[in-house]
Computed example of a mutant assay.
Amino acid sequence: MLTCAIIDDDEINRLTLEHYVSLTPNLKLVASLADGMAGLAFFREGNRVDVLFLDIEMPHLSGLDLLRVLPNPPEVIITTARQDFAVDAFALRVTDYLVKPFEFARFTQAVERVSSRVGSSAPAGAPAAAEVPTRSDLFVKVNSRMVRINFDEVLYVEALSDYVNIVTDKHKYIVYTTLKALETRLAPYTNFVRVHRSYLLNTQHIESIEDNTANLHGGHFVPIGKSYQEGFYKSLQRI
């Protein structure tokens, strides 16, 4: 049984989520709150839950700002009408991102993801172990589209001022976020290493290294910055 809370300023949406929770045998609703400030007070009073269904756009304190101030948030399923906050949300390590209106089947899928992250012996609200991530993909906003990117397919990420260029074998995605935010999101995946102030590299795609340049699959090249070289070479398994 997973305990849960709902924070959403739209009453219809709250009632819909409450109904979905009531249809889910392994969920127990602890609180249903109308805004972020009420949610902040709930957690500061020492209340804990396993999963939080959280809206983003709310008066006084947004859902993302609430996550930023909580020292130890539970598993979070974002429930929002907006698609364009997905990158920021996943940078805060939310478990799933549901865009309203969503069906009960999609709600159930998100709950199953939480169940796989929260062990049966874990206390309510305990965060999933970072070293055992269960998601291997990320939704990013590219122009007006939300695109799913599989982490394993990413060759490298390049910083472009306020944007990043996410490069795979077949595509390049220009995304409005920072390299630091994406590095934080990918931290549990040990294949990703910062090798330059402007580059994040997926080491599983390295074919060779020459003159402090990593040669990747598909003829891609990534420079290894001087200040990163010692740590990078120490991390390699080499003879």
Rank of each mutant, 00 (worst) to 15 (best):
S116I: 14
T24L: 14
K172C: 15
S161K: 13
I149E: 14
L200A: 01
P59A: 10
L236H: 07
D152T: 11
S62T: 15
I77G: 01
V175A: 08
K172A: 15
A81L: 10
A38Q: 13
E230P: 05
G225W: 06
M37T: 14
T79K: 04
F107H: 03
V140K: 05
T203K: 12
Y20D: 10
V164P: 01
S22L: 03
N150G: 04
P123C: 04
P133N: 02
V154W: 08
E112R: 07
Y20G: 02
H220N: 11
A124Q: 06
I239C: 11
E158D: 05
A159R: 03
D211L: 10
I77V: 15
L98I: 08
V76Y: 00
N191R: 08
V175F: 07
P123K: 02
A41F: 06
V76K: 00
G125P: 03
H19P: 01
V76N: 01
P59V: 15
A124G: 02
L66V: 04
V87L: 06
Q83A: 11
Y173I: 12
N191M: 13
I56Y: 04
P71C: 02
S136Y: 07
G218P: 04
R145H: 11
I12D: 11
R135H: 07
S115P: 03
F232C: 08
Q83K: 12
S32E: 08
S144A: 05
E45M: 09
L236Y: 05
N165F: 07
V195P: 05
K226S: 13
L29P: 08
H19F: 08
K100A: 07
E183H: 04
N47P: 09
V94A: 00
R93M: 12
G225F: 09
E230K: 10
L23G: 00
N143D: 14
L17K: 00
E153F: 12
A130E: 13
E75F: 04
K28A: 09
D162P: 03
L201K: 00
G46V: 11
L179K: 01
L200N: 03
F42D: 12
F192K: 11
A126P: 02
L29R: 06
A86K: 03
L70S: 02
N47T: 09
E75D: 07
Q237W: 09
Q229I: 10
S116N: 11
V140H: 06
P74Y: 01
R135A: 12
I78E: 02
G46K: 06
G231F: 03
G119R: 10
H19M: 13
Y163R: 13
I239L: 13
E183Y: 01
L67P: 05
I224W: 05
N215M: 10
S227F: 08
K234Y: 00
I56D: 07
L98C: 08
G231A: 14
A41R: 10
N165M: 15
V114P: 04
L17E: 04
F232M: 11
N202H: 04
S115F: 06
N47E: 13
D8S: 03
L138R: 08
A187M: 10
Q109K: 11
Q83H: 05
